[in-house]
Design a protein around this nucleic acid. Structure first.
Length: 261
DNA sequence: AAGCCGCACAACCGCACGGGA
DNA sequence: TTCCCGTGCGGTTGTGCGGCT
């Protein structure tokens, strides 16, 4: 179909964001929310395309972002999920509240991938798994007229395993191999459950779904260790609602944090 | 001190997808 | 049903920084 590039307008700024631009974007989103990303830069007085604003918000300015290096447990989890899902970074990221797909993708490309390569593990095998899986699934659907569903990680895993070793798709073995090589001693379901508790953030609609407790203070890089349970706050629609949250109910706090990051 | 190199990560690009008209 | 538009996603590039020579 082809789409017009969203950044075709002359005079749009590119490259690293300045503090002032960040301020404007945060200020606008906090006060107005997000109706249409394309309108955001115009209304916020930014010489950026909407896409750029969205990316900046999602990957850097979002208040629920967890900053800092990925933990060992998270790394293990990423390897496991990558073995199952391949390069579907957004799906993988959805298992890590406060982490972005970009962050995980970068971590994979710079750290884990290299580590695996060094140890003689073919990290691209995961991509082949996904390609083969798609092909197999397509032919399977033709044969049995089964609606394809790949939104659920567990389903994905089951399907990959179901395809069997004849297609080179024994993801469990593949993951186990990687775990062994990386000296990952346990890849238990318990570990998986802990990290995949159904916490999701829909950054576009600015709504949050939580079934586990999060620590917004640490998300913002704060020093407080107070755990806040927002389990009763199933969905938070719009930025106005976000402002109810203790961690960023003061716009000044955001700016303070920005300046100190 | 200067230049080079590699790493980490922010940001961009282009295609795909889904929804609405 | 088709077309258009906004957004999501994954791959790639750009850039800043620290370590090394």
């Amino acid at each position: 179909m082809g789409r017009q590039p969203c950044c075709d307008r002359e005079g749009l700024k590119r490259g690293p964001w300045t503090m002032e631009e960040d301020r404007r974007l945060i200020d606008f989103i906090i006060n107005n929310g997000i109706q249409c990303w394309r309108m955001v830069p115009k209304l916020a007085g930014l010489l950026r395309c909407g896409k750029s604003c969205r990316l900046r918000w999602i990957n850097y300015l979002r208040p629920d972002l967890k900053r800092g290096a990925l933990s060992e447990a998270e790394e293990k989890q990423i390897i496991e999920l990558h073995a199952r899902l391949g390069n579907r970074w957004s799906k993988i990221a959805s298992h890590f509240p406060g982490r972005t797909d970009n962050e995980i993708k970068n971590h994979w490309n710079t750290g884990i991938k290299k580590k695996l390569k060094l140890l003689g593990v073919d990290s691209n095998a995961d991509n082949r798994i996904m390609k083969d899986k798609k092909q197999h699934q397509a032919s399977k659907n033709e044969q049995f007229n089964i609606a394809s569903t790949n939104e659920n990680t567990q389903v994905d895993c089951a399907k990959i395993d179901e395809l069997g070793p004849e297609n080179g798709m024994n993801s469990k073995n593949h993951y186990d191999d990687m775990c062994r090589i990386l000296d990952v001693d346990s890849c238990t379901n318990k570990d998986h459950e802990n990290l995949t508790s159904t916490s999701r953030c829909d950054s576009n609609s600015l709504s949050f779904e939580n079934s586990s407790s999060i620590n917004p203070n640490s998300s913002l890089g704060g020093s407080s260790s107070v755990e806040v349970d927002y389990s009763s706050q199933q969905w938070v629609d719009g930025v106005d609602s976000l402002l109810l949250w203790d961690c960023f109910n003061q716009q000044d706090d955001l700016f303070f944090l920005l300046e100190n990051n």
